[in-house]
């Protein structure tokens, strides 16, 4: 499918003061493109969760929004540390968030499950020492 628009946002590790800025911009742009309703709601939730995951768990990475004629795609890729046990990580309520993140109210262990629930296609690949890539697609209803 021909890609029509792409923009990426660098996300720094542990930068809580900027957390949420990328997802806010993603929402704004989708609204300008005329993407609304249920899809926008789901992208909003998933993009916020994935951005926060980069801030809380990664050593830095980027979030990339691509818009196709029939779908919205979000790809988050980071440079580490990687997830040792993906099955465990996908479980509701399981979290490895540190004290700092927990003191800010994060770490409920709902991030990945929420991303999966809100996207139409969800894929996660991770290698310890290399990094994690999450790809989510949201279909635009015609």
């Amino acid at each position: 499918m021909e890609e029509l628009f792409r923009i990426s946002y660098p996300v720094a590790a542990a930068d809580y003061s900027s957390a949420g800025k990328a997802s806010a911009d993603i929402k704004r742009r989708l609204k300008q493109l005329g993407v609304g309703g249920d899809v926008l709601r789901r992208v909003a939730v998933a993009s916020y969760e994935v951005e926060l995951n980069l801030v809380i768990h990664s050593e830095g990475g980027e979030l990339c929004l691509t818009v196709f004629p029939g779908a919205v795609q979000l790809v988050s890729s980071d440079v580490g540390p990687g997830i040792p046990d993906l099955d465990m990580a996908m479980r509701e309520g399981y979290s490895t968030a540190n004290e700092e993140a927990r003191s800010l109210g994060f770490g409920a262990g709902m991030g990945l499950p929420n991303m999966k629930r809100n996207s139409d296609e969800f894929d996660i690949k991770s290698k310890v020492g290399t990094g994690t890539t999450i790809t989510m697609r949201f279909n635009l209803s015609a």
Partner: peptide, 23 residues
């Protein structure tokens, strides 16, 4: 009703072209 004044164009393809140009 929603207010769609922020929308760049009624046609999503045209809206994306405008957004690219904006960037």
């Amino acid at each position: 009703e929603p207010n769609t004044a922020e929308k760049l164009d009624d046609n999503i393809v045209e809206a994306m072209r405008k957004m690219k140009q904006m960037n």
